[in-house]
């Protein structure tokens, strides 16, 4: 790994200042993505700004209609939170299915969402629940946040501080994990929200996206059979050694029907 200057700021302001001041600075949260990338020299930042211990950036607050999760909150904390389990169990389940226990002990929600890995789990929940991404300078709607492969609406030096998830009437997340990494080959998050039905897909495309045809069909009739014959086009979907685009398109349908069935059967809310 190439050397860098290490900073451990004690406030968000200090972190913002450091990020703006350095030549090619990177935030370090759990490091579960950034450090492997740096080992391969795919990233060679001049400065590392370690925000993993920044107080105020982690923690879970449940209000009457939302769950607010600090950006540096670890996956394990979300998975084991009794409060999250009570109001958005699908989110706790999703967090508990990320990688392995050691990844969950260190990886953070902000790092995952900022990274917009095509196979990451959290983006499906952020988009599926219509969450708001709050940064050091503004609030961004989930619908305009994920813009492409490892691309988001974030500015170079913008820091996610928390993510606000509206509490849905019901939601479910089903993923078809890669047997090796546990990343989502395909994952589908279905939610009945105050703003309507939302179906978000991860793993299949360059970044998380909404399956609007699925949403329309489910708005008419909320049952797995309502999705019979509804598909996402394979065009532009990911293809790799694990699965080609047609197979992923097929999996989106299967996984979505499972998620709908889970809600219809009153499984995960």
């Amino acid at each position: 790994m190439k050397d860098f200057v290490y900073h451990r700021p004690s406030s968000l302001d200090e972190a913002t200042g450091l990020l703006a001041g350095a030549e090619d600075a990177k935030l370090l949260a759990g490091g579960m993505t950034l450090l492997p990338t740096m080992k391969q020299r795919l990233a060679m930042p001049s400065d590392i700004i370690d925000i993993s211990g920044l107080s105020g950036l982690s923690g879970i607050t449940v209000t009457a209609d939302s769950v607010e999760i600090g950006a540096a909150t670890k996956h394990a904390a979300v998975a084991s939170s009794a409060e999250v389990q009570a109001v958005i169990p699908a989110l706790a389940k999703l967090a508990g299915g990320i990688g392995d226990p050691q990844v969950r002990n260190r990886g953070t929600m902000g790092g995952s969402v900022a990274n917009s890995d095509p196979a990451a789990d959290y983006p499906a929940a952020v988009l599926g629940l219509g969450a708001t991404i709050v940064t050091d300078r503004r609030s961004i709607d989930a619908d305009s946040f994920f813009t492409g492969l490892f691309e988001t609406a974030l500015e170079e030096d913008e820091i996610i501080t928390k993510i606000v998830f509206p509490i849905p009437e019901a939601a479910a997340y089903v993923k078809f994990p890669s047997p090796a990494s546990r990343y989502a080959l395909v994952g589908v998050f279905v939610a009945k929200t105050k703003g309507g039905l939302r179906v978000a897909v991860t793993g299949a495309g360059p970044c998380a996206f909404r399956a609007t045809d699925f949403e329309t069909a489910l708005a008419k009739e909320f049952s797995p059979t309502a999705l019979a014959g509804v598909t996402v086009p394979a065009d532009g979907l990911n293809a790799d050694i694990h699965a080609d685009a047609e197979y992923r398109a097929h999996l989106v349908g299967v996984t979505a029907r499972r998620a709908v069935a889970e809600i219809a059967n009153g499984g995960a809310a």
Partner: peptide, 9 residues
């Protein structure tokens, strides 16, 4: 808490 020491500075 258990962590992968190869993925931590």
């Amino acid at each position: 808490v258990s962590m992968k020491s190869c993925t931590m500075l």
